[in-house]
Amino acid sequence: MSTCVELKQLQFTWPGAQLPLLSIPELTINRGERVLLRGASGSGKSTLLGLIAGIHTSGPGQVKVLGEDLAGLSQHRRDRLRANDIGYIFQQFNLLPYLSAMANVTLACQFAPARRQRLAQQSISAEAENLLTRLGLTAAQQRQPAHQLSVGQQQRVAAARALLGSPALIIADEPTSALDQAHRDDFIQLLFEACDAQQTTLLFVTHDATLAPLFPRAIELSDINHGGGGRDV
C-alpha cells in the first residue's frame, strides 16, 4: 500500500482528435510524496488530472488511484472516491461565492462519508475552523462570504477544503498562478505543512519551472508523455 497514483501504458485521445493527447508508459507516485508536475499550457496537464480525479476515463488498468482501477469503477464510485480521498484545488474561483469561507470548507464533507468518518472524533466545523486558522484566516474572515475574500485568502480556503477530513491525495492545478510571488511561496509552504501533518500525498501541477526547487520530486510532463495531440487551450 505504498503507491498512491499509478499510471501504466496510459493512452488518452479526445473524441474526434487524430493523435492521443496523452501517452504515458509509466508514472508512479507514492504515498506521502510531494510531486511537482510541470508542463506547458495545452500539454495535457489538466486532462491528466481529470483522469486521475476520475472525471475522464481511460482504458482498463491504465489509471490506478489508491490501488483502485478507475476504469473498473462506475461513475458514481469514481465520484465517491474523489469526494472521499482526493482534495482538488483549482487555479482560481475555487469557492462558491455565496457561501461563507467556513461553509465552503465544510462542503467537502457533504458528498464524502469517509471524510466525515475520519473526522468522527471532532466536529466537522471545529476541524474546519482549525484548518482555516492554521492557514491564516481570522475568525471574522471565516464567516465572510467567499467573494469578499482576497484571491490569496480564497486559495487558502480552497486548500482547507481539500485538506478537511484527511484525504489521501491533494491535486493542485496551478493553485498559485493567480498569486504574487510572496503569497505564492507562503501558500506552498502552508500547503506543505498541512500535507505533512496529515501525511497526504500532494500532486502539484504548474507551468512555472521556478517552483521546481521547492519540491523533492519534479516531473517534466514532456519527458514522460509521448503523445503529441496537444490541443490549443
Binding site: 461513475q75 469526494a83 458528498f111 477544503r161
Partner: peptide
C-alpha cells in the same frame, strides 16, 4: 465544476 471537484456526481 467546484461541486464536481468535491465529489458531486
Amino acid at each position: 465544476a467546484v461541486l464536481r471537484s468535491i465529489g458531486a456526481g
